[in-house]
Design a protein around this nucleic acid. Sequence first.
DNA 1: GTGGTCTAGACCACA
DNA 2: GTGGTCTAGACCACA
Lengths: 125, 125, 125, 125
Amino acid sequence: MDFKSNETIYSQITEYLKKQIFCGCFASGARLPAIRDLAVLCRVNPNTIVRVYAQLTEEKLIYTDSTNGKFVTSDGAFILQKKREYLKQKAEAFAKEVREAGLDGKEAVRMLGEIFGGQEEKERT
Amino acid sequence: MDFKSNETIYSQITEYLKKQIFCGCFASGARLPAIRDLAVLCRVNPNTIVRVYAQLTEEKLIYTDSTNGKFVTSDGAFILQKKREYLKQKAEAFAKEVREAGLDGKEAVRMLGEIFGGQEEKERT
Amino acid sequence: MDFKSNETIYSQITEYLKKQIFCGCFASGARLPAIRDLAVLCRVNPNTIVRVYAQLTEEKLIYTDSTNGKFVTSDGAFILQKKREYLKQKAEAFAKEVREAGLDGKEAVRMLGEIFGGQEEKERT
Amino acid sequence: MDFKSNETIYSQITEYLKKQIFCGCFASGARLPAIRDLAVLCRVNPNTIVRVYAQLTEEKLIYTDSTNGKFVTSDGAFILQKKREYLKQKAEAFAKEVREAGLDGKEAVRMLGEIFGGQEEKERT
DNA sequence: GTGGTCTAGACCACA
DNA sequence: GTGGTCTAGACCACA
């Protein structure tokens, strides 16, 4: 994992883990890497990971089982809801950019369709 | 203009101006606010605006007419090209988020369609 | 290091460092002086050095390893290429001066040969 | 005439005129453009031209014939000497760059020969 | 200790 | 009044 220099490292790692949870790479109920392990993996100070886990805990996506470590919440429906919110927010941010730059929605949707490799077209058939 | 705390002020202003140029609010050839004026407007130090304008100058979106001020480049085609690039990049970033969070493109496109208020559907008819 | 008054300080320092990199005084991969250290050394404000390093970073001659400091790019071939470009550009600027002042190239080359202390002649033998 | 933004305008115009004198475009004894005319031509404030002419006067390349205007010095030998000095200085500056960037003189001379379109080779034959 | 951002404000060139 | 450079120094993130 490489980091952008214009964003804080912990927020980049937080985003990364969030997406890992959403996509199921860290499944509901799964045990997360130990702080030290993840710190080594990310070549980052353990304090940074502490902060990452704190944030995810606050969002209730993970919880601490005191002696056993950190786990992804077992409430699958909650994760799904969070996932929807997350993507809705990303989509709205993108839509905002599009509008502010004076492009119309139609073209933006087409652009996105292209990026997804013509999936949209296939669908219509 | 309010600033987010997790992004640098100068990059937020840069983005803002870029979009103003793309959407035509600052038209090709138009004069931009004087450094000191924009600084007052944004309640920011003039040096911050210097940096913003330097960045836009480097991207060739604006240029300096020695003591007369800063102007949007008069090459309209160039601006259009930059606008396309900008939006392509935003669309790709969004698509990347979508994929990483394990959503399929189809759903992302639909989500975006909804946000744009059904413009897409109307059009097909 | 003394500064000429007709050129900006930051560009003089940038040029200086560039040549230090080209000649190998700062070798590929080597760590550069810390911003504050170089500022003290040059008796200049740290912000000026920030600007110098920013410029060299943009040219990809150096890079930042987050909190560890600044380093000369490890791509030696790239440096060599940049060095060639740099000298080509200087040579062309000199040639332009020569032509504009109405001297012919032949004489300019001879003049330069003299300055280099007859190395050229020795070599042919 | 376009101006670089990193050098003062008056010094750019001074250099320009100097070379015009050296190459004979403004011949020994010739009348120079009136301050106002040159100011208009260069799209520059007349004060800037005043400064330019002052500098050339100081270098004795031009003189003022009180009521009639400014003239290139009629001492042709003096101009020749100045020209040599000027080019010597440029050549030495170039040589200094070359050395500082760690290139050897041989290669610099060859590079220059190339730029002058193989004139050097012709000479040997 | 490392780099990055930002402020407040001086001083310069040019018009 | 326009932009550009520079200083002195604060404050932040990360290690």
